[in-house]
Amino acid sequence: MLGLTIRLAAYPWDESLPLKGEARSQSCGSTIALGLALDENGIVERIGVRSQACAIGQAAAAIFADAAIGRSSQALHDAGEAVARWLAGEGETPDWPAFDTIARARDYPARHGAVLLPWRAAAQALSMARTPR
């Protein structure tokens, strides 16, 4: 899991990204800022991350970023909902590449907020986007 944290270097923060969101874990204080750029069809084409998070939060952000490019805003929303349901004890492990790497965090409720950070930040960023016509 710690090896994932260095993956965030591949997604440097970029002030020019038009959609920005932030999330903070109430349980551990970790924060993630996420910047996104969508193409004309609402597909993620660029991502930037600024993290002040624990290892779980950084690993979750890396897993998110590694698979977010090429996905629609609806797919990101749906994945975030699936992660939240799974953490609440409902449903199977979310269908997101490499998610199994942090799946053990489910056994530690104090880390649930850190797991959700990138999806919450993405939801906030995407709420700024206009729906494609």
Rank of each mutant, 00 (worst) to 15 (best):
M1K: 10
L2S: 07
G3S: 12
G3P: 08
L4Q: 06
L4W: 07
T5S: 03
I6L: 14
L8G: 05
A9E: 14
A10F: 10
A10T: 04
Y11G: 00
P12D: 11
P12K: 14
P12T: 11
D14V: 06
E15V: 04
S16L: 12
S16R: 13
L17S: 06
P18R: 10
P18D: 01
K20W: 04
E22D: 12
R24P: 07
Q26C: 02
S30H: 02
S30Y: 00
I32Y: 03
G35F: 02
L36G: 07
A37E: 05
D39A: 09
E40I: 05
E40Y: 04
G42E: 05
I43H: 10
S51C: 03
Q52D: 01
C54Q: 03
A55I: 03
A55Y: 05
I56N: 06
I56R: 04
I56F: 01
G57F: 05
Q58V: 00
A60E: 00
A60I: 04
A62S: 02
I63C: 03
F64D: 04
F64Y: 03
F64M: 04
A65G: 09
D66F: 03
D66Y: 03
A68S: 11
A68P: 01
A68D: 03
G70Q: 03
S72K: 09
S72T: 14
S72R: 12
S73I: 03
L76A: 11
L76W: 02
D78G: 07
A79D: 04
A84E: 14
R85S: 15
W86K: 00
E90V: 11
T93I: 15
T93N: 08
P94F: 10
P97W: 04
P97T: 13
A98F: 02
F99K: 05
F99C: 11
F99Y: 12
T101M: 07
A103S: 13
A105W: 07
D107K: 15
Y108P: 09
Y108C: 13
P109Q: 00
A110F: 12
R111V: 09
R111K: 15
H112P: 12
H112V: 04
H112M: 09
H112E: 02
V115D: 06
V115M: 09
L116M: 10
L116D: 06
L117V: 06
L117S: 06
W119T: 04
A122N: 05
Q124P: 13
L126S: 02
S127I: 10
M128E: 15
R130Q: 15
R130I: 05
T131P: 09
P132H: 11
R133A: 15
R133H: 15
R133D: 15
